[in-house]
Nucleic acid binder design. Structure first.
Lengths: 168, 168
DNA sequence: TAATTCCCGACTGAATTACTCAGTATATTA
DNA sequence: TAATATACTGAGTAATTCAGTCGGGAATTA
């Protein structure tokens, strides 16, 4: 379990996808502009997320990325783990002699802490964040704008709407 | 809130101090050998821990480091924060325009997650780890050995004992 | 066909990690 | 008092990671 800016980028990007899930795919260009992250860097992060099945890409105009699973089945721990490659495990773990045959005590304790932390973050899903009332309110406001414009441009409403509601 | 190998080093070292608290100061040389971390690197980490008042150093032979406060009053979050300098906060936070005047939604959500995580780690104290029965058992065994030798070398028992019970 | 998007790999400067070395300061012990 | 063990400090450094650029290719839509 490691946690850095990289993990934060991945989580916020995934939240973005979750929020705009019903509007069709979200482009990396949108996220890039929105959150101030370089496009190519996002591509690298999303390559890892895709490998884990957390997102799926849709090519071509009107394409982008959408969640690979329902937001309720994607945990924060999964997201972080897929981009922040695991911290190197302590030397003594696995082979059980740290110092003098006896299995290292503090390393056991760290393992304990680490798994508690993982459990905590694995319990938090994307859905548990975006389903809170304040969030739904903001999301709803953006939807009304989007759908109003959508009725004016019937063919690909999602794309047009997405451009408008790109204010993160 | 950032979490890396550096933080792990600090936490395990602090656990070491907490476990051997009643035996007098623990030297960095012990921890270094025990946990396979370079001595000078430990010194740098402990400089930060000392600055935060989490540990206090004792110079001279028989010296070392001991906890700056009772183990029940030192949280994991404090330890990590003192060595893993904080993740750079998102651009839009503070000044409240991320993109178009409206405060960035995903960044609010991240702040939320971040504070939940901090609260979780701030609730975990050193004491909550070392007070578990398995740990006390190991610690007790080492104590009996230490005190048996201590009676044979009256003047500075703690130091001699520490050398023996250095198997982490 | 042209445009838009995902996808892929090589490369790069800057920062961080983990470490080495070389010393100074303070306390203990012989 | 001299020797020793420890904490402290700071400068330097190879390796790694971060975050990004660049140049393309592949699939989809219009």
């Amino acid at each position: 379990m490691k946690l850095s800016t990289k993990g934060r980028y991945a989580v916020t990007a995934m939240l973005d996808l979750a929020i705009h899930d019903h509007e069709g795919p979200v482009t990396l260009a949108d996220i890039s502009q929105c959150q101030g992250i370089s496009l190519s860097y996002l591509e690298q992060l999303f390559a890892k997320l895709r490998k884990e099945g957390l997102v799926e890409g849709v090519r071509g105009p009107g394409g982008g990325y959408r969640l690979g699973r329902p937001a309720s089945q994607i945990s924060i721990a999964e997201i972080i783990n897929s981009v922040d490659e695991n911290i190197d495990v302590t030397r003594c773990l696995g082979n059980k002699d740290c110092q003098g045959g006896e299995k290292c005590l503090t390393h056991q304790l760290w393992e304990d802490l680490s798994s508690r932390l993982y459990a905590f973050l694995d319990d938090l899903t994307l859905a548990s964040f975006i389903n809170r009332p304040e969030i739904r309110e903001v999301s709803r406001r953006q939807d009304t704008i989007a759908s109003r414009i959508a009725t004016m441009f019937p063919p690909r409403p999602a794309r047009v709407g997405a451009n408008i509601s790109a204010s993160c």
